[in-house]
Design a protein around this nucleic acid. Structure first.
Length: 261
DNA sequence: ATGGTAGTCTAACTA
C-alpha cells in the first residue's frame, strides 16, 4: 500500500499533473495540500473517473487540503474530521479520515514567514494545538499516519545549506524543530529516515533563483507513521520527477510503502 | 544585485 503526500500549489493548475502521477505511481492514498479551491470547485468527478475517491476541505485562493484514495484497493473513508477540534482557524489546513483501521491525518502546516513575526507566532500556536489533538488521535487510532507539508526541515541533512537554514531561519528555527520533535515524541517516526537515502534529496525547491536547477531545496514534506505501523513500512522516498515536468508545483511527492497487516 | 517566480486575481498577498 503506497501512501503519499504532495503540495500541489493549486489543484486547478496541477490537476493534469496529479492525474498523470496517479496513473504512473499508482498510490493507494494521497494527501494533498494547497489545493486553493472552494469545495464546490473541487475536481471530485475527474478524480473519480481516475478511480479515486476524494475528501476535501478548501477555500478560495489559499490553503486547502484533500485526501484521495484508490477505490479498487482502499475502503471508503470514515470518521472524517475537518480542522483541529477546539482550535478556531479560518484557514483550511487539516483533514483526517479513517480507511479501515488506518487513520490518516493530512496537515498543511503554517509557513510562518519569518522568525518572530505574527505568522510565526501563529505557526507555533497551531503546532501546539496540532500536537495535543494528534496525541488524542494516536490514543484512539494506533495505526496512524500523519503526513503533509510540515514547513519544517527536520535536521541539517534536510537542507541544501545549513549555514543559511540555521537555528534562526524560518523552516529550521529551534522552536519549529522542537515542535516537530514534540510530534515525533508522541510515538511517530519520520519514515524517510528508516531507510538509507541518497544525500541532498529534497521535497521543495523555491521557484525563485532557479532553485530546482541548482538543487537548492529543503525536505519539508514528511510522512510520519506510528510505532504500530513501523514494522510494516517496507520503503519510503521522494519522487522528484513531477518537479521536472512543465509548469510544476514547487513541491514534489513523498511516499511510503506499507506491507499488508 | 537584499533580487528572483508562481498562483490567485488585475493589487497585493502568500509562499
Amino acid at each position: 500500500m503506497k501512501i503519499a503526500s504532495w503540495n500541489v500549489n493549486s489543484l486547478n493548475v496541477r490537476l493534469p499533473h496529479l492525474l498523470d502521477w496517479l496513473a504512473q505511481a499508482q498510490p493507494d492514498i494521497v494527501a494533498l495540500q494547497e489545493t486553493k479551491l472552494e469545495d464546490a470547485k473541487f475536481p471530485a468527478e475527474a478524480l473519480a473517473q481516475a478511480g479515486y475517491h476524494s475528501v476535501f476541505t478548501g477555500q478560495k485562493t489559499y490553503n486547502g487540503v484533500a485526501i484521495v484514495s484508490r477505490m479498487s484497493s482502499v475502503p471508503e473513508p470514515e470518521d472524517i474530521q475537518i480542522g483541529i477540534p477546539g482550535f478556531e482557524d479560518p484557514q483550511a489546513r487539516v483533514l483526517a479520515a479513517s480507511y479501515g483501521g488506518l487513520r490518516i491525518i493530512d496537515l498543511y502546516v503554517v509557513n510562518g514567514q519569518a522568525v518572530g513575526s505574527e505568522k510565526y507566532d501563529y505557526k507555533l500556536r497551531w503546532l501546539a494545538a496540532a500536537h495535543d489533538w494528534i496525541a488524542a488521535e494516536h490514543a484512539r487510532h494506533p495505526e496512524l499516519i500523519v503526513l503533509g507539508d510540515f514547513n519544517i526541515a527536520p535536521d541539517d541533512r534536510d537542507v541544501h545549506d545549513p549555514a543559511i537554514w540555521n537555528e534562526n531561519s524560518i523552516l529550521t528555527s529551534t522552536a519549529e524543530r522542537a515542535a516537530l520533535q514534540g510530534l515525533l515524541d508522541l510515538g511517530l517516526v519520520d519514515s524517510y529516515r528508516l531507510f538509507e537515502q541518497p544525500p541532498e534529496q529534497f521535497s521543495w525547491w523555491d521557484y525563485r533563483a532557479a532553485g530546482f536547477r541548482r538543487n537548492l531545496g529543503l525536505r519539508i514534506d514528511l510522512v510520519l507513521a506510528s510505532q504500530a505501523l513501523k514494522p510494516r513500512i517496507s520503503a519510503a522516498g521522494i519522487d522528484r520527477e513531477p518537479r521536472t515536468w512543465e509548469r510544476p508545483s514547487d513541491h514534489t511527492p513523498v511516499w511510503l510503502e506499507l506491507a499488508p497487516a
